[in-house]
């Protein structure tokens, strides 16, 4: 199943089973979704539940919050993570705080879905990974879907959840063919051990999962048995799974596409310092996006994000430098 089809299936089933589920966003209806995630939904559920909005991100999320207050279960689709910056006031000042500042009386069952990351030469205003902006906010759940199984099961969970969920996708994943499994009593907050290993823990999420899997083949040739963990949930973070792995491997690398400074790895490393310091044989290695906006030229673009080659060479250098 294609990744985007898994997302579509999750939305479709939720809309089928619960009339209060609606989806709104730019081009989600008649056009079929800019990445075809919502394809076919409008003909099944009509334009009252599959809502084509104007280009007004603040309102897309704000309206969705209002719908949630009134008892609907809205899914707000933002076309690209960069545009969600226009909606941040509604997400952060409103969605994340309404339950708390009402003393628990308000309930906001909201999902905000958005794709991000470096796709292919879309340049600085269309290529960002801003997950830490959301993962630093109390009151938000932040999930990342790197694969069809997680996408389907976690999105279904998110739609049924009674709290606001930021659901992050990646533009390069939509057309990818993937294994797919329906999971009973799915828990979206558990990290996934993608591959077990004993020498080294590699933490990653979203599209970087695939770059890490590529890199691991080379590491294996170099005699390194790496354990790959997909974080899945960025807030909350599954520190238990991470800590257990580090206890075994004594070494940890995080591979992320967002900018290094203040990126997701910064928070992960902090939690590792608090929980696993005495288990570590070496400082944690962060392989991250460079601290520059994303350039258009393909060669430059690739120079600003991790690639399988870079992941391998950085890990080998780091091992040599630390004598591990």
């Amino acid at each position: 199943m294609l990744y985007r089809e898994a997302l579509n299936k999750a939305i479709d089933e939720c809309m089928e089973n619960d009339e209060s589920v609606v989806i709104l966003g730019e081009d989600v209806g008649r056009y079929g979704g800019s990445y075809r995630v919502t394809e076919g939904l409008i003909s099944k559920y009509g334009e009252k539940r599959v809502i084509d909005t104007p280009i007004a991100e603040l309102s897309i999320v704000g309206n969705a919050i209002g719908m949630a207050i009134a008892g609907l279960r809205p899914i707000a689709e933002i076309m690209t993570v960069n545009f969600s910056l226009l909606a941040m006031d509604q997400i952060i000042n409103h969605a994340s705080k309404l339950r708390y500042m009402s003393g628990g009386k308000m309930t906001i069952p909201l999902v905000v879905r958005m794709p991000g990351g470096v796709s292919r030469q879309l340049a600085a205003q269309h290529s960002e990974s801003y997950e830490t902006l959301y993962a630093s906010i109390p009151g938000l759940i932040v999930l990342t879907a790197s694969n069809a199984t997680y996408a389907y099961n976690a999105l279904k969970w998110a739609i049924k959840s009674n709290d606001p969920v930021i659901f992050l996708e990646h533009e390069l994943l939509y057309p990818m063919e993937m294994d797919f499994k329906e999971v009973k009593d799915f828990n979206p907050f558990r990290a996934e051990i993608v591959k077990e290993g004993k020498d080294l823990t590699i933490l990653t999420y979203l599209k970087m999962r695939y770059d890490v899997i590529e890199a691991e083949k080379e590491l294996k040739k170099a005699g390194i048995d790496a354990e790959i963990i997909d974080l899945n949930s960025l807030r909350p973070l599954d520190i238990d799974t991470i800590a257990k792995s580090i206890k075994k491997t004594k070494k940890c690398v995080i591979v992320e596409e967002d900018h290094k400074t203040g990126g997701m790895g910064a928070e992960v490393v902090s939690q590792i310092m608090e929980n696993c310091f005495y288990d570590l044989d070496a400082p944690v290695l962060r392989i991250a996006g460079e601290d520059v906006p994303i350039p258009y030229n393909r060669k430059l673009e690739l120079s600003t994000i991790p690639t399988p080659d870079k992941i391998v060479s950085k890990i080998l250098d780091w091992k040599a430098k630390n004598g591990i």
Partner: peptide, 13 residues
């Protein structure tokens, strides 16, 4: 074309 001689040095597109 994403070239160095571009009006934004190939960084904007």
């Amino acid at each position: 074309f994403g070239k160095k001689t571009g009006i934004s040095k190939g960084k904007g597109g």
